[in-house]
């Protein structure tokens, strides 16, 4: 054991520049990897918050809504409000759908009150009159991701003027965010590949500078574990440095960008916090150790074989 430690130390001293280079590459690649974990967490958090609040609004016909039988006519009879029978059928059908958690009814008057409350301090408060409001069913789903069936069904029912859901707005947003996540992952993977190659190369160099010792070790029958160990330890030391630096980078990111700024200035959005940072650091540690050990073992099979 003492010999292994001594060999590790002398190897580190001899390959100072390479060890430093490996550490920096690992730092950058693991930080990016950590960032991609953070972004994933952030998107998941926002998705959870928004999708939880999403409800489907099923707007009913009014006397004016389908005035000329135009594009916004939906399933309305021109000049006719939704009848009570239609209303009951709609409610019944919505409640019967297995995806639906609950349904409540919002009258014109309630909608108008809500409108006035929302725009109380705004000039918009007088733009719409009570008659321009619509009765609607508000539908909460069991799983907000499974909205398509309910929306499609509601659109076919007589007396429904229009069906609205926020997915139409959010889905493009999330597809952009998803693309960003994959972009970050791709970059991280690329950098990690570069780091792995560099580590393999370092081992090769290090084996070359120690070829005399290695030759004698083989000759007198040192086990391959014994021969490989100092190299693994050397990479682990470099990896540990890289992991530590990128963990600090991730923590700094979460603290200065998210906790100190984003959470303060953009309160409307749900933001990740320290727990997400711990998750990212855990992943960084796992990836960092694997990154040190796997290429070292692979290249040691090649360069350190007995």
């Amino acid at each position: 054991m003492r010999h292994i430690l001594r060999e590790t130390w002398s190897g580190l001293k001899r390959n100072r520049a390479m060890t430093f280079a490996v550490m920096v590459t690992m730092w950058v690649s693991l930080s990016l990897f950590g960032a991609s974990v953070l972004v994933t967490e952030q998107v998941d958090t926002m998705k959870g918050r928004w999708y939880d609040q999403i409800e489907i609004s099923v707007f009913l016909c009014t006397e004016v809504s389908a005035g000329a039988g135009g594009a916004a006519a939906g399933n309305c009879e021109p000049g006719q409000e939704t009848t009570d029978a239609q209303r009951e059928l709609i409610e019944e059908r919505l409640n019967a759908n297995p995806e639906v958690a609950n349904v409540y009814y919002e009258t014109k008057a309630e909608a108008y009150e809500e409108y006035q409350r929302m725009y109380a301090n705004s000039p918009l408060v007088d733009v719409l009159s009570k008659d321009q409001m619509q009765d609607s069913f508000r539908v909460k789903l069991k799983d907000p991701e499974n909205y398509r069936g309910v929306v499609a069904e509601a659109k076919t029912l007589p007396g429904v003027q229009n069906v609205q859901d926020l997915h139409q707005v959010l889905d493009p947003l999330f597809s952009v965010l998803n693309a960003l996540i994959w972009g970050a992952r791709f970059l991280a993977a690329l950098l990690i590949l570069a780091a792995a190659t560099q580590i393999g190369n370092t081992i090769k160099l290090s084996a070359f500078t120690r070829r005399r010792e290695l030759g004698i070790m083989r000759l007198v029958g040192a086990s391959s574990t014994y021969i490989t160990m100092p190299f693994v330890m050397e990479s682990l030391v470099a990896a540990l440095g890289g992991i530590l630096l990128s963990a600090l980078t991730v923590m700094a990111c979460v603290k200065f960008v998210i906790i100190d700024r984003a959470q303060v200035s953009i309160k409307a959005l749900a933001w990740i916090g320290w727990p997400a940072a711990w998750v990212a650091i855990l992943w960084i540690a796992v990836a960092g150790v694997a990154l040190a050990v796997v290429p070292t073992l692979l290249s040691s099979r090649k360069y350190l074989a007995v």
Binding site: V220, S223, V306
Partner: peptide
Amino acid sequence: QWRIPEFRRQI
């Protein structure tokens, strides 16, 4: 392969 080191200690 893994028996070789042990074996070489005899030489």
